[in-house]
Design a protein around this nucleic acid. Structure first.
Lengths: 341, 341
DNA sequence: CGTTAGCACTCAATAGCATCGAGTGCTAAT
DNA sequence: ATTAGCACTCGATGCTATTGAGTGCTAACG
């Protein structure tokens, strides 16, 4: 358990380091407002804090830098949440209000707002689609052997695949199929669509249409879209302005991670509901072991739909970011509610 | 006009510099196979070539580096196109053959192949959609006041917008509208869709439906998609391995350009048909003044549809890249032909 | 007369060295 | 318990010398 004074010193070091990105010495802490101790005293405490694992020294005769454990303590016990300034709030809501009638737009906008307001990189996971249900199904023939299958969900999302038409099926039959599928499948959650396709619709379809197995196969494949989430990044180059990324090597490993959508998605979606902070080595991926990832979930009727998150250096403005994510995730919960009616 | 010997020397310098990325001295040229002259002779020629503007010197007592003009001469007169190796060809076609039934997939794959095979950054512009025609139109109501408008083109591309429904229109009327639009507009090129919407369909629609102006407005807006081209980048981080981008500042300006899709698109689409090479300062944008951009068009029935391109440092393997783009653009022409029937 | 050997010269890069100063740990005095 | 004092550490900074790859010029050569 840390003493009151140790907490105060740790707090001061983290705050200063977040601002300056340079190791903090005892003298600068001592000269700070509200600290009534000499550098020597601070030094002793700092030595203790280092032994306890909260601080690190790049080398002897350098100042101290917070360790992952130090940041963790800071976030858990010392941090006072920054108010989101009136100005930021206005800017944010102004952006979001802009008559958005596409859900995708809202999500993408949210990512942009986050990265603009923080100067870090933002990651936004769009609503999981498996919980959506089918609103409309359509087969549009393009020529003799191909057609476009279109799925519209209750939230207005449109998914489409090109499927090949088995020989011997003509347009009138296609229309029949479309009608059957619509009457049988509208309202079914996407996650159950494939199984329903076989169990309920299969027989009936077979009654009307020859060669229906091939078509079923094509539809089945079309439905097996593995992108139940869509992910949006924004401000990826913001990282490059951070002093911890003055080395091109580090930049490359990070940007390579950004290109690997599935990995990144796994990393983000492993976070639980609510606001979650992963600091430095707490993150499962090596490329962001000197970064912190903060996420918040937005939801509908208490059920989490997707996530918004900020990735920045461990030396991140936690207070500001956390309160911003909190506000925005709540706004999005409200805003997206209308699509989920 | 350059002498035979000058051409030989220029060729040698460009080739060597492309490999080594370091200024080339007279001695190393002299010692090269097939060159029967002493360093002193080479030096004299190099001085001449510099005076003529084909070479540059980073500083006195350094070797020579090709200038933009030097590269230009190299590309126009000296370059012998590399054969695309059997292995690369197989790899490429293997990738493209992979039962792709989505046009988007083909395009995206092409970008990936290019960046993988070259280790530069690839830029691919999808087929311009304005020349496509409407295949099917659909209005799917989501709830009381919003609906999804879906457009399918003859090439199987699906575009969708959420539109708000004016009060007082019910579902049966929506279906009527859909039917009218389909009978009147199928086959019309997308570029003329908006004008036709007013000129031909407007009155007829008005006869059946009240409050139709608002709906028209909504549809009109939905059709005004400004992304007639879709653009795909791949291998953006490949640039970071190039020695000319060891400086984070330069990396940032380049990556920022990559994020500015419209600017980049303008840059690329300003290139004419066929294979086009823009070297260094020949490019209109400052961020790529030390890069070369090579593009090729793919087409259908002689009409250019879209572009594939490679962006790399001016010190680029022109021969390899050009022949690769040539082969791939022709393959894509063949492959995409089937969608344009 | 074109070519080349020879030579003085230039200049970035590298290494060595002294200096500086911010910061530390320890000890003894308060 | 706190702090002043002090020796010590070590990266950063700046200066100088050295090195070496490369040049331009001139004079000699076949």
């Amino acid at each position: 358990m840390l003493t009151e004074r140790q907490r105060m010193i740790l707090n001061a070091i983290v705050d200063d380091y977040i601002r300056s990105a340079e190791p903090i010495g005892s003298r600068s802490i001592s000269k700070r407002g509200g600290v009534g101790f000499s550098p020597a005293t601070i030094r002793n405490e700092m030595a203790d804090l280092e032994e306890l694992g909260y601080l690190e020294q790049p080398h002897t005769s350098a100042g101290r830098v917070p360790s992952t454990k130090g940041y963790r303590y800071y976030v858990d016990h010392l941090l006072k949440l920054g108010e989101v300034s009136e100005q930021e709030l206005n800017r944010m809501r102004g952006f979001l209000a802009d008559q958005m009638n596409q859900m995708e737009q809202v999500i993408q906008h949210a990512a942009m707002i986050l990265s603009n307001l923080t100067n870090y990189t933002s990651i936004v996971l769009g609503p999981e689609m498996f919980s959506n249900s089918l609103k409309h199904f359509q087969l549009v023939p393009l020529n003799q052997d191909t057609a476009v299958a279109i799925i519209v969900t209750n939230t207005g999302h449109v998914e489409n695949r090109t499927v090949s038409i088995p020989v011997g099926i003509d347009i009138s039959e296609m229309e029949k199929i479309t009608r059957i599928l619509n009457t049988k499948l509208v309202g079914v959650p996407l996650s159950r669509l494939r199984s329903r396709l076989y169990s309920e619709v299969g027989e009936e379809l077979g009654r009307y249409v020859e060669h229906c197995e091939q078509l079923m196969g094509a539809l089945d494949e079309a439905l097996a879209s593995d992108n139940e989430h869509r992910m949006f990044l924004s401000g990826t180059t913001n990282m490059l302005t951070q002093p911890e990324f003055k080395d091109v090597e580090k930049v490359k490993t990070l940007l390579d991670l950004f290109d690997e959508t599935p990995t990144l998605m796994k990393l983000v979606s492993s976070h639980p509901d609510g606001i979650q902070v992963r600091i430095g080595t707490e993150n499962d991926h090596e490329a962001i072991n000197n970064c912190s990832l903060i996420t918040a979930t937005y939801s509908f009727e208490g059920k989490s739909l997707g996530m918004i998150g900020i990735l920045g250096p461990t030396r991140m403005e936690y207070g500001k970011v956390i309160s911003l994510l909190d506000v925005l995730s709540k706004d999005m919960t409200v805003l997206l509610g209308k699509w989920y009616k």
